[in-house]
Simulated scan of single mutants.
Amino acid sequence: MDLFEKAKTVRLRTITDKFLVAEDDEETVFQSREDYSKNSIWKVERIRGRYVRFKSCHGTYLTASAQLFVPGIIGKKVVHQSIPQTADDVWIDWEPVRDGFQVRLRSRSGSFLRPNGGLPPWRNTVTHDMPHTSKTHEKVLWNIDVVEALPTPHRRSCSDFTKAPAPHVDDHKTAASHPPHKKLTTLEDLW
């Protein structure tokens, strides 16, 4: 989870350097080597402690669907769908499982976000399933490229105070003429 702590938006990159991309049809996801597209940028939403959600540029969420990718094969489709039906829509929740500088993204059902390669219909597709061999266990690793970090609150240092001009001795303004300080009540007020 700490890889996403300070990230506002990210690109998810496979170990073969392809990016997870949300297609303009507002449903399909695929892999692409092109990283300049806004469709490869995902907004990170942290929820319920260890889970995150990924929101596409279309306002849709990366979703682990229950539909098989190819009938008779284990992998299930990964899509990006619209706003969750309920606040507890678990199909859009992903648990980052750190492995060094990379993560495996596990759905609530226990399956992992998996990029596929090979011949069509698998080439550049993304599914979710359980890795059964050491080779597929490595395929579900993702690199996290932070595109935009969350702003950090400015902490005043000693040098900040030395830069401010000292008050003039002949300054006759009273405290009553200064506006009252605004009370900060939410985190948004701090930003």
Rank of each mutant, 00 (worst) to 15 (best):
H58K: 07
S56D: 08
G75I: 12
N124S: 10
W122F: 15
F54I: 06
W142I: 02
I83S: 09
G59I: 04
S109Q: 05
S37Y: 07
P96E: 00
R48W: 07
T125W: 00
V97F: 03
V79A: 10
S65I: 02
S37N: 11
R114S: 10
F101N: 12
Q81E: 15
S40I: 03
P71M: 12
T133F: 09
S37Q: 14
F69H: 10
F54Q: 04
D160E: 07
R104S: 08
Q81N: 06
Y51G: 00
P84W: 09
L62Q: 07
V44T: 04
W91T: 12
K135I: 12
I144F: 10
K77W: 07
P153Q: 13
P153I: 12
W122T: 13
E95M: 13
R156Q: 03
Q67W: 05
S111Y: 07
R114P: 00
C57Q: 06
R155Q: 05
A64I: 02
G49Y: 10
K55I: 11
D93G: 00
K38G: 07
I92V: 14
A64V: 04
Q81S: 13
V147M: 10
P131Q: 06
I83D: 12
K43G: 06
S159A: 11
Y61R: 01
G59T: 04
G75C: 09
K43H: 13
K55F: 02
V140F: 05
D129E: 14
T136L: 10
Q81R: 13
G72R: 06
V90D: 12
I47K: 11
R98P: 04
K135E: 14
A87C: 09
V126G: 01
V103S: 01
G49K: 15
T136C: 01
R50A: 05
V78E: 06
V140C: 14
Q85I: 08
S109F: 01
S37W: 12
R50H: 05
W122Y: 15
I47S: 01
D99P: 01
S159V: 10
S157Y: 01
D88S: 13
S65A: 14
A64K: 00
F69Q: 03
K139G: 04
L113W: 03
L68W: 06
G110E: 09
L105Y: 00
G72Y: 08
I41S: 02
S65D: 15
F69A: 03
S65M: 08
V52W: 00
S56N: 02
R53H: 02
P71E: 15
V90W: 08
P84Q: 05
T63V: 02
V147R: 05
D89P: 04
P96A: 07
